[in-house]
């Protein structure tokens, strides 16, 4: 099948890749670009394990065709830490024990980051509503919600 060239910004750097029209962004990230931190849980937009930021919007990478991302700005879990400095959300997930198996964790961190950057004061209910697109089967969500609240406090503190 004929492949199309795509140029995009990925985690702050320019990338270009060739893709078939039927390939999802998730497939390109994982299989062509080697960024396996974005996870595949269902490939039909129901679990949020492949959450990434696309031009500042939270999306499921399985539901975006790679050809659509020409000229786009993409952020994946690999771009969340600043060098050896973990993002407050990453640190909070560790300290709150907000992960067990860890497969949903990258998606949750991306989704929570999208929320907190807009609403660092998000209430527990708001956090639960926002994260309802991300499934976790291990934790029962309590520690994830607490980690997001904790990171929110810290992000607000460092912003002011």
């Amino acid at each position: 099948m004929r492949r199309t060239q795509v140029q995009a910004r990925l985690n702050g750097a320019d990338v270009d890749f060739l893709c078939e029209p039927r390939q999802s962004l998730l497939e390109i990230l994982r299989d062509e670009l080697g960024l396996t931190g974005t996870k595949e849980g269902c490939s039909n937009g129901n679990c949020g394990a492949c959450s990434v930021m696309l031009n500042g919007r939270l999306v499921n990478a399985c539901c975006v065709l790679a050809v659509e991302t020409d000229g786009a700005d993409i952020l994946t879990i690999e771009g969340v830490a600043d060098g050896d400095q973990l993002h407050p959300l990453q640190q909070a997930f560790l300290e709150e024990a907000a992960l067990q198996c860890g497969i949903c964790t990258p998606g949750f961190i991306i989704a929570a980051k999208a929320l907190l950057e807009r609403e660092p004061d998000a209430t527990e209910e708001r956090i639960r509503y926002w994260l309802a697109g991300n499934l976790c089967r291990c934790t029962g969500y309590d520690k994830i919600v607490k980690a997001v609240q904790r990171a929110g406090v810290q992000m607000k503190g460092s912003a002011s």
Partner: peptide
């Protein structure tokens, strides 16, 4: 006590290799 798990950083940074990440 409640220390941070040994595999924690790999799992919050997307570096941990799960089944489908073998290459």
């Amino acid at each position: 006590t409640r220390p941070i798990r040994p595999d924690g950083v790999e799992k919050v940074t997307g570096k941990a290799l799960f089944g489908a990440d073998a290459r």
